[in-house]
Amino acid sequence: MLALFLRDIRLNIRAGGGALTGVIFFLAVIVTIPFGVGPDLKLLARIGPAILWIGALLSCLLGLDRLFQADREDGSLDLLVLGNDRQMLALTVLVKCLAHWAGSVLPLVIAAPLLGLFMNMEPLGIGATALTLLVGTPAITFIGAAGAAVAVALPRGGLLISVLVLPLTIPVLIFGVSASYGATANPDPFLQPFLILAALTLFLGVLGPVSAALALRHGTD
């Protein structure tokens, strides 16, 4: 399993450059917002956490279609499915998700504080948003894995995955943003939405890989 993790990380660094694409897309989304909204610094600071979350969510969806498709094209996916008796397929999927997260999504979380400066956010708000992103984005990857497994056989599955996955990520977005606001706006709580966000990640960390494994096993042809 460690071997699979290392292989996927290595592939991510050497081949796709998926991390950089995601970060640049994230940057593009965040940088255009002030031009659209106008130079109202108070307004920017207020919508900052929400914009960062939406930008990160969209960037997460960007690379999801390659999660299984690359393995399917070169035949590795067949062998991963065949290994089910030794290495449970759901576990294999979980490891692939973690590698994908570490390779493509973690850079977004690291870039988020810098992009928060563009939104005129205060340091506490930036810290809270980065923390909620760190805890919440794995959930998006886990849901995305289920979508990617369903659409693995489709040649242009990227858009379909986004459409399938986006509605399911709404709870993650809601609790992520409300926790980020809770850290700065005083009457709002931080801990409760943050804990629900963590619970969502843990719950989807089981449900996502299991359903993705089911879809992959029945999707081979």
């Binding site: 292989r7 592939l11 070169d74 035949g75």
Partner: peptide, 18 residues
């Protein structure tokens, strides 16, 4: 059978970048 077999299909199941 899956646990007892090696499957060599049309594709080589190797990553070009590694």
């Amino acid at each position: 059978v899956a646990s007892a077999c090696h499957y060599l299909g049309h594709q080589n199941a190797m990553k070009p970048a590694l």
